[in-house]
């Protein structure tokens, strides 16, 4: 859609129900923990700040720059939110951004919202935090450390999240691992450069305008080490698992067959009632035609009813 530059918002129907529910579960756990952390560590002042910053990230995703021809680079904002707010608040902010995109703008589905929050909010934030703080620790108090850290954090957060999306699509049996993962990873390796460049520009601007924003976060938030380790683990697992999975798509297909059983064509019941479509109708084509007739009748009746009631309102 117009507002989502990244092909990273998975719509409904593209993840198997099992994968969607598992990722919902993981997302709820992490977001609940982040809520607890933010409630403890941050003052009441942070509540309006997180709301307005979520709106700013949503609006910031509209900012683009011409790359070449008709293509352009955009901002996703996970890295910059993490750098400015710390990981826990960033997770909440990105949860709200992704949530509104799904709920209001149909950017990404509702059943797969948990997966989308997981990819863009949690994976993006943890990886960005890990990358940024590693680079800053190595470079000390210098501006170029912030800028390099920002670029690496932005690029890595996009790339790892994209690998995650590819892996989820493959596990769901939507597209084979040796196509989905290289495609997502390849496209986003380029998109990530755009994200990195914008993030660096934004950090340079903020550094000269409001240096205090960077010093405030210097101490690091409570539980920062957990996030760092989590980010490192996520990055390593996805960076290692994805090439492995795309090199051996058969193994993943096996997982897809096992996991996707809920929406795979043949359930165990299929064997009990073979060639038996509707009670009394032994032909699948007939069932489809019947459903077509019933569906048409429903829509027709509803249309008539609405037209009738509207005319009655107009005449009275």
């Amino acid at each position: 859609m117009l507002l989502s530059p990244l092909p990273m918002h998975i719509p409904d129907g593209f993840l198997s129900v099992a994968v969607s529910l598992i990722l919902w579960f993981a997302t709820i756990l992490v977001v609940a923990y982040a809520l607890k952390r933010v409630g403890e560590d941050l003052g009441e002042r942070q509540v309006p700040m997180m709301g307005v910053l979520a709106a700013a990230i949503f609006a910031g995703q509209m900012l683009n720059f011409t790359v070449a021809g008709g293509t352009s680079g955009h901002l996703m904002g996970a890295a910059i939110a993490t750098i400015l707010l710390g990981p826990w608040a960033a997770i909440l902010v990105l949860t709200c951004v992704v949530g509104i995109q799904a709920l209001i703008f149909q950017d990404g589905g509702l059943l797969v919202l948990g997966a989308n929050i997981f990819n863009m909010g949690i994976v993006g934030t943890a990886v960005a935090y890990m990358a940024y703080h590693t680079v800053r620790r190595l470079t000390g108090e210098r501006l170029w450390g912030i800028l390099v850290g920002g670029f690496v954090a932005a690029w890595l957060s996009i790339e790892i999240a994209a690998l995650g999306v590819g892996l989820q699509l493959a596990i769901s049996g939507i597209s084979p691992a040796n196509i989905a993962i290289p495609a997502m990873g390849g496209i986003h390796a380029l998109i990530g450069i755009g994200e990195g460049l914008i993030t660096v520009g934004a950090l340079a601007f903020l550094y000269s305008a409001r240096r205090d924003l960077f010093q405030a976060n210097q101490a690091g938030p409570v539980g920062g080490k957990t996030v760092w380790v989590g980010g490192l683990l996520i990055a390593l697992v996805l960076a290692v698992a994805s090439p492995l999975a795309s090199a051996h798509p058969d193994g993943l297909e096996w997982v897809a067959e096992q996991k996707g059983f809920l929406d795979a064509a043949q359930g165990p019941l299929y064997n009990i009632i073979p060639d038996y479509v509707l009670p009394g109708i032994s032909n699948e084509a007939l069932a489809t035609i019947l459903a077509g007739i019933v569906g048409t009748l429903i829509v027709f009746a509803v249309g008539l009813l609405v037209a009738y009631s509207r005319r009655r309102v107009q005449t009275s």
Partner: peptide, 11 residues
């Protein structure tokens, strides 16, 4: 990219 970044920063 830097111009776009500056815009994001000021936003």
């Amino acid at each position: 990219a830097r111009v776009a970044g500056g815009m994001a920063g000021s936003l």
